[in-house]
């Protein structure tokens, strides 16, 4: 009896990566799992090789640094007045909610009085201004320095209508500054057109 094409056993194409027909479903699954595992191992090995090649990926670090740099430059630029603390000046804390505004800075540290970052008069060990520098409450050198600042700001306001001289003084004082020194400075400022004071403090929120 001649064999019809239908009776012929089915030919398996060796190029097809299919499991042989006689494998059960469990065996197929097992083989697939093994293949997956082999693939993962190969990937891990490749990654380890890449890590040991000596090339450091600094792109992520660069991203972080750039963000930090932008933040720092922005905060540096947005401060209207630079206030710094140190051994000679420790600013007291307060519950105030007002923010720092642009004003002429006057610093009273443990060692001296500074007008716009320029040392003007020395403070003695007892925390007071040298009596030789004073005429009553008035501290001569501080008055001179503040007068110069007032004239400077008035000149700017003459040429720039947006800038207005309001006689605003930002007092940045050490927390141990004596009341006598403070009132002397405020009295002196009052004599040279600085009538509004803002005391710089650390916000205690």
């Amino acid at each position: 009896m001649a064999e019809t094409p239908h009776d012929k056993p089915e030919m398996i194409d060796p190029s097809i990566n299919a499991p042989p027909l006689h494998h059960s479903a469990a065996e197929i699954e097992k083989e697939e799992a093994e293949a997956r595992e082999r693939k993962l191992k190969k990937k891990a090995k490749k990654r380890v090789e890449e890590d040991h090649s000596g090339e450091l990926n600094i792109v992520a670090l660069m991203d972080a640094f750039t963000i930090i740099l932008v933040f720092l430059i922005k905060s540096y630029a947005s401060d209207p007045t630079q206030i710094t603390q140190g051994d000679d000046i420790k600013i007291p804390t307060s519950t105030t909610t007002l923010s720092v505004v642009e004003a002429v800075p006057l610093v009273i540290s443990k060692k001296g009085v500074l007008v716009n970052s320029q040392a003007v008069v020395r403070i003695m060990d007892n925390g007071l201004v040298d009596p030789a520098e004073k005429q009553g409450f008035l501290i001569g050198r501080v008055a001179e320095a503040l007068k110069k600042e007032a004239e400077h700001h008035k000149m700017i306001s003459r040429f720039n209508s947006k800038v207005k001289f309001e006689g605003l003084l930002l007092i940045v004082a050490d927390k141990d500054t004596k009341f006598e020194t403070l009132t002397d400075v405020l009295f002196t400022a009052g004599q040279v057109e600085f009538g509004q004071f803002k005391f710089a403090v650390l916000k205690n929120e």
Partner: peptide, 26 residues
């Protein structure tokens, strides 16, 4: 450059400290 700039700005900046003011008049 970036590392140097960051170090400089962190040392000189007071951005992390919140300053405020109290209005006072004579």
């Amino acid at each position: 450059i970036v590392v140097n700039l960051i170090l400089f700005l962190m040392l000189s900046s007071t951005g992390l400290v919140q300053f405020g003011v109290i209005n006072v008049s004579a």
